[in-house]
Amino acid sequence: MSMSENLDAAKLKVRDLRLSFGDKEVLKGISMDIPEKEIVALIGPSGCGKSTLLRAINRMHDLVPIARVSGEIFLDGKNIYDKELDVVDIRRRIGMVFQKPNPFPKSIAENVAYGLKIAGGTSGKNLQDVIKTSLEGAALWDEVKDSLDKSGLALSGGQQQRLCIARAIAVKPEIILMDEPTSALDPISANKVEKLMLELKKDYTIIVVTHNMQQAQRVADRTAFMYLGEVIEYRPTRELFESPIHDLTKNYISGDFG
C-alpha cells in the first residue's frame, strides 16, 4: 500500500517523546511518523497534549524554563533536540501558524517579509517577489495587493490568519505546524483556510491540531487520536473514523466525551 511506503521515508519521526512541565508529565512517550507532503491531524479532548506535542516539534518549549523534554524528533533523520543543531535553523525549517491569528503590528508587506529580513540577505526586487508569491500561496494576494502598506491588524480575522500563513511560507519551511488554525474564524474564513491547506499540501508537510473532527476528515491524510498524553490510535484518517480500534477513540469520535 502506498501509504506505508510513504512511512518508510517519513519526513519527521517522533520517538518516545516525553515532556513535563515541572512535576506534571504532559507527553508520555509519543512515537509517530509523519510522511512528507501529507496532512496529519492531531485530535483529542482538551488537555490531552496535542498542542504540547505540536509545539515540541519546533522547540517552542525552549522558551518555557520549567519544560523538560526527553526522547527524539528526527527531521530528515537528524534529531532536532541534538545540542549541535541550531534552534533558529530548525524553526526556519518548521514553521508555525497559531490558533489566534497573530500578525505583527506592522504592514502586510513587512509581516510577510519579516522571516526573510531577519535571516538577512534578501532585499529589493527579490523581496517584493517573495511577498507576492507568499501572499498568492496563502490565497490572499487578490484581496490585499493594493494595500500592502496597511497594517496587518486592519485585516479581518480570516485574512489575518491567511497573512500568518503567508508569513510562515515566505521562509520556505519544509513543515508547517498549525495549532487549531480555524477555531477563531467564522465558517467561511475557516473554509478558505481548509482549502488552502489542501493546496499547500503539494509543497509542504502539514501537522494540524484540531478540535473539529469534520475538519480532520476533510483535510487530513492521517489522524492521530491522543488521550492523556499518549497517542491512542494513529491511522489513515478514513480508517480511524470508520473503524476505530480502541474504545476510547470510538467514544471520542462518536461524541461521548470531549
Binding site: 517552542m60 524553526r91 505583527f104 519579516y114 508569513r167 521562509v171
Partner: peptide, 9 residues
Amino acid sequence: EASYALGAN
C-alpha cells in the same frame, strides 16, 4: 511567539 517561530532569536 510568532517571531520565534519564524526563526528569530
